[in-house]
Amino acid sequence: MKVRDAMTNDVFVANPEHTIAHAAKVMADIDCGAIPVGENDRLVGMITDRDIAIRAVAEGKGPDTRVREVMSSDIKYCFDHEEIDNAARNMGDQQIRRLPVIDRNKRLVGILSLGDLALSRENGSANEALAGISRPGGAHSQSADSHAV
């Protein structure tokens, strides 16, 4: 099964100049925990509810803080034509729950989440990814000092 067959393809893309209040509202409205960030038709980052909590609120930043200031710019992604088992293995190895999906032209076409894997016909992929994601990690990368802008 290909990633394109399991991914969510209706994806909101935040702008780096949006406020974190706007990003949080969108997350609440569409019931998601992560939003890709795009600028000039390029994927430049991801912002998660955890980024907002750890890199903004915990650091005393207010709701008008720009997405650019707290997003993760080290983006992991997969291709829509990739086998789902390969993407799931990468999610587990990298301990991430969501991957932006790009096409051969490097345009964002969707998001592949752990939930998408669980709902796919090949839900053994979800077990593999979950096992890797649940493995105790090393130093956490959510601190304000550890992300590039």
Rank of each mutant, 00 (worst) to 15 (best):
G62W: 09
P16D: 11
I102V: 07
F79A: 06
A53L: 07
E83Y: 05
N40F: 09
I52N: 01
P16N: 10
A53G: 02
I84A: 14
K25R: 12
R50T: 02
N86V: 12
G92W: 10
G33A: 04
R89A: 13
I20S: 04
I30D: 14
I75V: 11
P100Y: 15
R55A: 03
A88P: 12
G60H: 12
E83H: 11
I30Y: 14
P36R: 12
L43A: 03
G92V: 04
I96S: 11
R50E: 04
M71Q: 05
L43E: 14
G62C: 04
D41E: 06
G62Y: 15
I54G: 15
I35S: 05
G33D: 11
K76T: 09
D51H: 01
R89M: 05
P16V: 15
I35T: 11
A28I: 13
S73I: 15
I47S: 07
E69P: 01
R98W: 13
I52H: 02
D74L: 10
N90H: 10
D64W: 08
E82K: 06
A53R: 05
Y77F: 07
F79I: 14
A23L: 10
E83M: 15
V67I: 15
E82Q: 08
F12G: 14
M46D: 08
D93V: 09
I35Y: 09
R42P: 09
P63N: 10
G92S: 10
M71P: 03
I75F: 08
D80H: 12
D31N: 11
G38K: 02
A14F: 07
V13G: 01
M91S: 15
A23G: 10
A88C: 08
K106A: 15
A14C: 09
D51C: 01
R97F: 00
D103R: 14
A53E: 04
D51G: 00
R50V: 01
I102A: 07
D80Y: 15
A87C: 12
D74S: 05
T65L: 03
I30C: 14
C78T: 13
N40H: 05
I47W: 06
E83N: 14
Y77L: 14
R42V: 11
D41V: 01
E17L: 02
R98N: 15
I30F: 11
R42N: 06
M46P: 00
I47E: 07
A34M: 11
R97I: 02
P100N: 09
A23T: 13
E39T: 00
H22L: 14
M46Y: 03
P16W: 06
M91Y: 04
T19I: 02
G60L: 06
R98T: 08
I84K: 13
I96D: 05
H22T: 04
R89N: 13
K106Q: 13
A14W: 11
A24K: 00
T19V: 03
M27P: 01
K106F: 15
E39A: 00
N15T: 01
K106I: 14
K61Y: 08
D51V: 01
R68Y: 06
A23K: 07
G62F: 07
T19D: 06
V101E: 09
A88H: 04
N90K: 09
N40M: 13
T19M: 04
F79S: 14
D31C: 04
D51M: 02
R68K: 10
N105I: 13
P16E: 04
I54F: 10
V70H: 02
L43S: 03
V26F: 11
I54Y: 10
M71T: 13
M27L: 05
G33K: 06
M91H: 07
V37R: 07
